Amino acid sequence: MSTTTAFPIRQWPTLTITGESVKYAVHRIFCVGRNYAAHAAEMGAEVDREAPFYFTKSALAFAASGQTLPYPPATSNYHHEVELVVAIGAEAFRIAPAQSRGAIYGYGCGLDMTRRDLQLAAREKQRPWDTAKDVEHSAVIADITPADRFGVPASQRIRLTVNGEPRQAGRLSDLAWGVDELISDLSHYYHLAPGDLIMTGTPAGVGPVRPGDEIVGEIEGLTPVHLTVGQPE
């Protein structure tokens, strides 16, 4: 028996995998908040040392690196945040940190673009951040590098420039909650599965961008992520 729908079913977006002919289908996007102490401080907060905390972006917020994407509506303070992205490649549910490495398919460099004015207004009213974070084209991610070609996240440099000027810089060792801890913790809330992405947090130096700006995010050993901010729609 065939099933029809009122509207065409949208396909899951896909990411290019370095050195592979197949692609990585994006399922869910989990994002970690305040996972670098210096960034938490610049936002007037502290790292939660009891447990990580998360917000999510729809898979439809994903955008491939290298595009010109419009400045989004309803904001006058659109910010860049460069992040290590972890691509899950195996099912994981209620696993220990020591088991987390077996669930990792690979890593990428990504941008968590944020309507900062909406985030701060929501935070002041103790409301969710959805309209600030789950923004169309706001999860910009470069090609995924398989884990065995990258190694283990350690002291690799992470940085971001806007129009060639340095904005953000740090090391992956600055993560308050490491990759293994994040995967384990998330697996106690969700049945993690291939296609899930985890954006692990951003170092200090976040700031606004404007139409025409060229953003480049880099992590040692990974494909850089590129974004040109286009004109508002």
Rank of each mutant, 00 (worst) to 15 (best):
R10A: 14
A169H: 07
C31N: 08
P97K: 00
E136V: 13
D196E: 11
P208H: 01
E233G: 07
T228Y: 06
A90Y: 03
C109G: 14
T75N: 02
K133D: 14
L15F: 07
L172T: 13
E165T: 14
A132E: 09
V26Y: 01
H39G: 06
K23Q: 12
I29N: 00
E181V: 06
P13T: 00
P8N: 13
H137G: 04
R115L: 15
P73Y: 00
L192K: 02
G106D: 06
A87M: 04
D148K: 04
P72Y: 01
L172M: 08
Y36H: 03
G89W: 10
H79Y: 04
P72M: 05
D117Q: 06
A132C: 06
P224T: 15
S173D: 15
P128W: 15
L84D: 05
R34Y: 06
A154H: 11
E50R: 14
Y36Q: 04
E233T: 10
Y189V: 01
I104T: 01
V86H: 04
H80E: 09
S65P: 11
E218V: 14
P8H: 11
P194Y: 04
R28T: 01
A96M: 03
Y78V: 03
V216G: 08
E46L: 03
V47D: 10
L192P: 07
S65I: 12
V22F: 02
L186F: 12
L69P: 01
R210Q: 12
T200N: 04
L197A: 10
M113N: 09
R157T: 14
T200S: 07
F93L: 02
M199G: 02
K57C: 06
A204V: 15
L172F: 00
S100H: 03
A40N: 13
V179F: 13
A204C: 12
A45D: 14
E81C: 01
I183F: 13
R101I: 00
T223Y: 07
K23L: 10
E124N: 05
E220D: 15
G207E: 11
T68P: 06
V162M: 04
Q168M: 14
